[in-house]
Amino acid sequence: MAKTTYLEAIRQGLAEEMASDDRVYAIGEDIGLYGGAFKVTEGLLNRFGAERVIDTPVSETAIIGAAIGSAYLGMRPVAELQFIDFVACCFNILTNFAAKSRYRWGAGVPLVVRGPCGGGVSGGPFHSANPEAHFLHTPGLKIVEPSTAYDAKGLIKAAIRDDDPVLFLEHKLLYRRVQDEVPEEDYVVPLGQAVVRRPGDDVTIVTFGAMTHTALDAANQLAERDVAIEVIDLRTLSPLDYETILQSVAKTNKVIVLHEAQRTGGIGAEIAAAIAERGFEHLDAPPVRLASLDTPVPYSPALEAAFRPSVEQIVAAVEHLVEY
């Protein structure tokens, strides 16, 4: 099987869904002729025409608003935000309109809002966001973030087929840096299921997105010192797969929750609290959160490296837990 990049996998998944279901369409800024700022939608305009690959003005609220309206009429829109940071512009319409619609009226909004998130590329304070925590607090909205090309394709297809709004976060660091063997046959990766990326007995690291790779790097280093890390890749951030997390904690009794978004009020707080509530008697040490600093994302590579969690920090946290 040929290797496919994370980016290409998302494009394939989107194209396959558009081909097999003509209710599915793409909408966003510069996604047609240009193929999207990161080229995720390259070629779709040629294949599906301007009616199903819609270039919009710079109007994020209009994009999501139009997507919601068309979804009421039976369409399944996939909206691209050029950078996920600009989801802030459509926060209202996404959380108040789209996410509450089913609860208020019984009208589901099968909408996927996708876009590049995450740092590590010197994008600076406005092109590096990891906004999951802002939306975790929104009932009615699902959140997904793949870490591999295989998952990226399987999850985008599952998100498109899902009957509720899904925020689909694509880590831009992974777009062209991660490659997998991706099957050509139709498959989905079901929403709501975490996966154990690496089994181990000593400490569990719960993470997702680009940090999955950082955690695996740390796990490799630690393996040389006979410390066995279990790495859980959440894949879906809402709803969370607590079963997989708690099963692992019951085995290792020590857990680190690792994410790239800022620490305070991050998804790690929610997961750590749930582990303390539901897995208390399995804990041999307090749950640890590792996350970025509570500052905006700085631009300079040196500052950003100091801002984001690193392999060294993970190793240090694990060492501490092992000794604890």
């Binding site: 905006p296 300079s300 500052l303």
Partner: peptide
Amino acid sequence: MAKGTSPTHGRDLNLH
């Protein structure tokens, strides 16, 4: 160039 001497000390970019 994201230098420490920049008006944002390397925290933000170009004309920001």
